[in-house]
Amino acid sequence: MHASNRTPAADALTDLILDLFRVNNLTLTWGDRLVAPLGLTSARWQILGAIVAADRPQPVAWLARDLGANRQNVQRIVNDLAKEGLVTFEPNPHHRRAHLVVLTDKGQQTYDAAISLYDPRVNALVEGFPIEDVKTAGRVMKALRKKLEGEENTEERS
Rank of each mutant, 00 (worst) to 15 (best):
T154V: 12
D66Q: 11
N70F: 11
D112Q: 13
K147L: 13
A69P: 04
Y118I: 05
E127G: 04
E149G: 07
V126R: 13
G107T: 00
G39M: 01
H95D: 14
M1S: 14
R71E: 13
S116H: 13
G31C: 05
Q58S: 12
L117W: 03
L144Q: 07
L103D: 06
V74T: 07
R65V: 10
I131N: 12
H2K: 11
A82K: 01
H95V: 01
E155M: 15
I77T: 04
A114C: 03
K142A: 15
T88V: 12
E149W: 08
R65P: 06
D19V: 12
T154R: 15
L26A: 12
R71H: 09
A82Y: 01
I131Q: 12
A61M: 06
V101K: 00
T136C: 07
N24L: 08
G85S: 02
K146L: 15
V52F: 06
G49W: 09
N5F: 14
Q46M: 10
G39C: 07
R44H: 06
E152M: 10
D80H: 06
W30R: 08
Q58H: 02
P120C: 03
G68V: 00
E132N: 08
N79P: 05
V122S: 03
N24T: 14
R22F: 05
R157S: 08
L48F: 06
K83Y: 08
V134K: 07
R22K: 11
I115L: 14
A64P: 01
K142R: 15
I51C: 08
D133E: 09
S158D: 10
V52N: 06
A114Q: 10
Q109D: 09
G138M: 03
Q58I: 01
L125A: 11
A69W: 15
L103S: 05
E127T: 12
Q72W: 11
R97E: 14
N92L: 04
W62Q: 14
E151M: 12
L63C: 02
L148I: 10
D80K: 02
A54Q: 06
N25W: 14
E155C: 09
L117A: 02
Q109G: 05
N25G: 11
W30S: 09
L103R: 00
A61N: 09
I131K: 10
A143I: 07
G39A: 07
R157Q: 10
W45S: 05
V87T: 01
K106Y: 01
R145F: 08
H94N: 15
E156I: 13
W62E: 15
E84P: 00
K106N: 08
L148H: 11
W45H: 04
L38Q: 00
F89Y: 07
V102S: 01
D105C: 01
M1R: 05
R71S: 12
H95G: 08
E149H: 03
V87W: 04
T88D: 09
P8C: 06
A124M: 10
L144D: 01
A12F: 02
S158L: 10
D32E: 02
V78K: 00
I17E: 01
G31V: 06
N123Y: 11
T27W: 11
F21Q: 13
E90M: 09
W30P: 01
R56E: 08
E132F: 06
W62K: 02
A64M: 05
G138N: 05
I17G: 04
P8Y: 02
L18I: 10
N79V: 10
D112E: 11
N5M: 15
E90P: 09
T27D: 09
E127K: 15
H95I: 04
S4I: 07
